[in-house]
């Protein structure tokens, strides 16, 4: 059976995923994706009536289980500096990133 995820489609997905891959790694990943699709195609064996809705979660979010929304009020946090200290590059409360090239949309 021909691969569903061809090298061209794979390259497109890699670009979307913002990944840079070594060539041997890319071949392994593409092969595994096609293997996984074989398992996913098991879903074609089951009849799904049209009135079956999609489930975004298992347990129903009943009114009793759902916590009340908290008030939409700002709360001071002392975590900001600690969070920034985890950044690879920050300065004076800002994350530093490389120049963002201008693109005409």
């Amino acid at each position: 059976m021909a691969d569903t995820i061809t090298p061209e489609l794979f390259d497109y997905l890699v670009e979307l995923a913002a990944l840079e891959l070594a060539s041997d790694e890319a071949e392994y990943l593409r092969h595994q994706l096609n293997q996984q699709l074989t398992a996913i195609r098991e879903l074609e064996r089951i009849a799904v009536p049209d009135d079956i809705p999609a489930a975004a979660h298992g347990v129903p979010f009943t009114a009793a289980a759902r916590p009340a929304l908290r008030a939409d009020e700002p709360v001071p946090s002392d975590l900001a500096l600690a969070l920034l200290s985890g950044s690879p590059d920050s300065d004076d409360g800002y994350f530093i990133v490389p120049e963002i090239q201008h693109q005409d949309l």
């Binding site: 794979f10 997905l13 890699v14 995923a17 913002a18 990944l19 840079e20 891959l21 790694e25 392994y28 990943l29 595994q32 994706l33 996984q36």
Partner: peptide, 16 residues
């Protein structure tokens, strides 16, 4: 960064 930081399993999951 993502190419270096992620191993093969995260990459597989992202791509699928």
């Amino acid at each position: 960064s993502r190419g270096e930081g992620f191993g093969r399993q995260p990459k597989l999951r992202i791509l699928m």
